[in-house]
């Protein structure tokens, strides 16, 4: 067996790390450019749970807002404009609270199924802007009963 000449020990192995920062920053820039910031936003609501038993609510506790198939808005039975709605509903809530010892009334938005979705959002937006309106419910009207 030939004797191998003793190898000289290498000085010291070193990994060049000077360009590591460059690589990392390059990756950061890549991620920043490819990330699409999509902020999800909208109007929150919690739907009522579906139960077998019917929950009965006194008629006077309900503040009814209806939207018909042409997109016209009614507070109770009388027609109203979007601009007036906020003040009127606010007043109704205040009156109810005074009469019933601070109990919250229920605001119900009944939308005809043929009405444009935008109208319902317009009304819901107005109600959302009233801090006193805590209980809001959505319902639909089908033409010819319902």
């Amino acid at each position: 067996m030939p004797i191998l000449p003793k190898r000289k020990l290498p000085e010291e192995a070193e990994i060049p790390t000077a360009s590591m920062a460059d690589i990392a920053f390059l990756l950061i820039i890549f991620f920043m450019l490819t990330t699409v910031f999509t902020r999800d936003k909208g109007l929150k609501i919690v739907l009522p749970e579906k139960t077998q038993q019917v929950v009965k609510i006194k008629g006077e506790r309900i503040i009814k807002i209806s939207i018909n198939d042409r997109g016209e808005i009614f507070l109770g039975e009388e027609p109203i404009t979007l601009a007036d709605l906020k003040v009127r509903v606010q007043q109704r809530i205040k009156d109810y609270k005074q009469a019933h010892g601070g109990k919250d009334p229920l605001v119900v938005i009944r939308t005809n199924v043929d009405a444009p979705y935008e109208r319902m959002i317009d009304v819901f937006d107005v109600i959302k802007q009233i801090p006193e309106a805590r209980a809001v419910s959505l319902a639909s009207i089908r033409t010819g009963g319902g």
């Binding site: 936003k41 909208g42 929150k44 609501i45 739907l47 199924v113 009405a115």
Partner: peptide
């Protein structure tokens, strides 16, 4: 521009699934 009918049907379906927390995108 969609008719409220479609939204109502979806809301009803979500209620059925007990997905009660809903946000209308605006």
């Amino acid at each position: 521009r969609v008719k409220y009918d479609y939204v109502d049907k979806v809301l009803e379906a979500l209620r059925e699934a007990k997905a009660l927390r809903v946000v209308f995108a605006t």
